[in-house]
Design a protein around this nucleic acid. Structure first.
Lengths: 286, 286
DNA sequence: GTCACTCATATCGCCAGGGTATCAATGGTG
DNA sequence: CACCATTGATACCCTGGCGATATGAGTGAC
């Protein structure tokens, strides 16, 4: 059997996400009947039904579920191939580094300085992204390498830990807990994080999608006492605010800044950047 | 810019591999002019030239080189998606285990027995492949999990070591070295492996493509004294032959049997198989 | 029972993509 | 140096795949 075309994958992903042929067709900018036919053809090629449809409801079969996951991966790989080729073809090649503002533990200036002295170095382009945007950026070819706090979904990525630092809690200056020199998670039971999740199950591993607030919003929520926040020490150090107090939290696991890059990357520029970063981090630790 | 279609990727890979439009077109079962046009269109979409052509020679640009690598990965991902969906749609779901004959260190029967008692177990299908076929089989969806000796290219794969065993050298019974109870690599300088590579640079890491010989061929070469061979102890134990002697080699790094599976796999059947395998291996070591 | 909703079927038309014929550029050869 | 073989590009045609519109059919809601 012949492999599907990317177009068929895009159609299927749209339908599988919407679970509705009409809406999916609209999203794809086409009419519903050809979409139905295209999906039927895809199922025919695969020899396997991907969707269970009644006239009232569309749902994924088990095969459809695994195909949705793999089709997304394949489409990402195509997007990444195109993006990386476009970038590699630029007359001015650059190294694109994805990171979240402020979450570089202050290493970035030294890293850049060290990197520029490397043999294989290129001009660096910084890609600021919100929480959780670094990993997709690596996957779809927008970035060549990323600095981000572990843990993260490392499938398809190589990575090295850089440095581990304690996380503090940010409290309103008026909070009674500010009197205490140090806290533990139990003291914060009932508090909420800026995104509305409970503050005392921080250990419950990576959660689903969290809303992305910028620092100003977070600070406002904290000052109002309506949220607490657990920044790594270096982030807190960089943002002293008169109405916010930082305190150590004894039983909060520390945060590990990590450098990550696609496993498929064989570029000497990436390797050089990783070398520069790890060496700067090692020096910073000692 | 819109992403390329799989067809365009297949065309480009063919041309990039042949570095010849005519031959590539023949391989693709089409005429040369539409292929030229398709590649031009692809380059237009990407906004980047992928091939340098004169009327006498075709070569890859830097962008073309990175695009070739990524396009192959993307096409593999599509093939894998299709294969896994087909397999997941079968009325009789199975777990497909890839391995190289005899290289299971004798664990397989116990692994299968243990696995069948697991909650999430499925009927197992064994996929015997030659050396180096396990990894591609995992990538393109022919296998769900593989047993193979480390090291191997683990990009995109998760894996766990199972057990480490010494490798022996297989010598013709008539070989003068047989008198020695144990050897080191230097003693074998000048000898060849069954595939024709020198025997004493075993430490030089994974080599390029090696020819795939079956056991009978290897044994014949060894008996004739025209090659030596370094099987793991368990493989040697399973193949006692009157005209072949096995001896330990002191400075030959041992072989580590490993279980590997695609990072994208979230199937409970795979997880159960990994559990069963690691527990059997742990028991075998103690 | 009727209506609204939604997916399937039927049919049409267009253009993307493949075919053939030919040109143009380049390197090898006597 | 003239000629030829080779090979990618161009010009042009034509077919079939893909998308649109109109309509049918099944089903849950009231």
């Amino acid at each position: 059997m012949s492999d599907p075309e990317a177009r068929q994958l895009r159609y299927f992903v749209a339908v599988a996400e919407e679970l509705h042929f009409g809406r999916a067709a609209e999203r794809l900018g086409m009419a519903q009947p050809p979409l139905s036919r295209a999906i039927r053809e895809l199922e025919g090629q695969l020899g396997v039904p991907l969707l269970e449809r009644t006239t009232r409801q569309v749902s994924l079969t088990p095969a459809g579920t695994v195909f949705l996951r793999d089709a997304r991966i394949a489409l990402d790989a195509i997007t990444a191939a195109a993006r990386r080729a476009r970038h590699a073809g630029q007359p001015k090649p650059t190294l694109r580094v994805a990171l979240k503002a402020d979450y570089d533990a202050g290493l970035l200036p030294r890293v850049l300085a060290t990197y520029q002295r490397e043999e294989a170095s290129l001009p660096v382009e910084i890609l600021m992204g919100g929480r959780g945007e670094q990993v997709p950026a690596l996957h779809d070819g927008r970035a060549d390498v990323a600095l981000l706090p572990a843990p993260f979904d490392d499938r398809g990525l190589d990575h090295e830990p850089l440095l581990t630092e304690a996380r503090l809690v940010a409290l309103a200056a008026t909070d009674p807990l500010v009197a205490r020199p140090s806290l533990c998670l139990a003291d914060l039971a009932g508090r909420e994080l800026p995104d509305g999740t409970p503050a005392d199950d921080e250990a419950s591993g990576p959660r689903g999608k969290r809303t992305n607030l910028d620092l100003a919003q977070i600070f406002n929520l904290v000052e109002l006492g309506s949220a607490v926040w657990f920044p790594p020490a270096s982030v807190a150090r960089r943002h002293p605010r008169p109405d916010i107090a930082y305190r150590p939290v004894e039983d909060l696991e520390p945060s590990t800044l990590t450098i990550a890059w696609p496993q498929t990357s064989h570029s000497p520029a990436v390797a050089a950047f990783v070398r520069a970063t790890t060496s700067v981090a090692a020096a910073a630790v000692s």
